[in-house]
Design a binder for these strands. Structure first.
Lengths: 186, 186
DNA sequence: GTCATAAAATACCAATCGGTAACAAAATGA
DNA sequence: TCATTTTGTTACCGATTGGTATTTTATGAC
């Protein structure tokens, strides 16, 4: 009867299409459970989507953060981010977090708060990464670390969102490489 | 009864929030007309949103294309695009076309087809602009005109979408300037 | 066996969605 | 003046939404 199975089903469905396009009824049907069972476990649709987002964060997003803390140089890390965003098969249908963030106003309060939390954490991770690069002597550009971090995050989000809309992978890589070249230009 | 007033009301509502979040009922209420009147005029929700998009294209998007055909140099045109995307008060709540494009799968067939048409026209305009710059000797970078056009279009879309989410205008300008600097780098 | 308890499913709720049938009022043409 | 067509409204349709009250089913304890 397994709450984890329900979370997996819901995560897959939310991820593959869009949280706003998947109803509670549909999730119950796909998971083979009844609606009251789901509501007893998660309380509300907001509770379910929040639990799904938590699961997604620890199962998927965490690996993205690992890339940032790899300790390798600026160019290598950027290359790894480009690989991840434009080639990783897990991002073939986009990123659930970015889909939720794009439709933030349609989420319940709990889920929305969690989205903002994760967004802030990601921003902080980008800042830390760029700051370490600046400390190491890489990237001496006259741009604030915060602005660079925001830029980096938005370019990643853009690339992965384009994956979701079926854009050609090589094209995405080309554009993302171009966008991130501002970090490695003299 | 005035179909234009209805279109104005619908356009404003779609534009300010999101086409997917504004129901036909709400539009009728705001326009002060009954639902059958609206359906007699536009046939369906798809017909209405398509008419709204047409109106938006000729009233708003056309001015954006004018910037591209200004005939001025590369740097001046890019600066004008940055001004438009990050400062123009009409883009304060984002761009209706980009909102429709982002939620393409939620649109009816007519509206969706029109979105794709406009998207292709925009891409063609970007291509023509960059091609003319390349012909004029500006921008000798080793990047295909098509890829550059796609990149330019996506960066504009990103900037305006960020306007819609309440991002700080100066920040948006900073990031967009950074993104488009790849066109003016030696 | 019986009986209490916890879990699950059926069947329902009000609200809203896009869309229409039926009908009243007003304009129009002969 | 009368018939017709157009314009608009009220009131409804079936489907779907998130969410529950109620009833059935399974599980132990005795």
């Amino acid at each position: 009867m397994n709450a984890e199975k329900v979370l997996d089903v819901a995560m897959t469905a939310y991820w593959q299409s869009d949280p706003a396009d998947v109803s509670v009824n549909a999730i119950c049907q796909m998971a083979g459970i009844s609606k009251p069972s789901l509501y007893r476990e998660f309380g509300s649709e907001d509770g379910l989507s929040r639990a799904v987002l938590d699961r997604y964060a620890e199962q998927v997003l965490s690996e993205m953060f690992v890339v940032l803390h790899g300790g390798t140089g600026l160019r290598e890390t950027l290359a790894a981010l480009i690989d991840f965003a434009s080639d990783d098969p897990r991002m073939e249908t986009g990123c659930l977090f970015y889909k939720m963030r794009a439709g933030k106003h349609r989420l319940g309060p709990e889920t929305r708060a969690r989205v903002e939390e994760i967004d802030a954490a990601a921003q902080a991770a980008y800042v830390a990464f760029l700051q370490s690069c600046r400390d190491a002597g890489d990237w001496p550009v006259g741009l604030s670390v915060e602005a660079g971090a925001k830029y980096l995050g938005e370019q990643i989000a853009l690339a992965i969102t384009q994956r979701a809309s079926g854009e050609d992978k090589a094209r995405i890589r080309e554009m993302m490489t171009l966008a991130l070249s501002v970090f490695t230009r003299p």
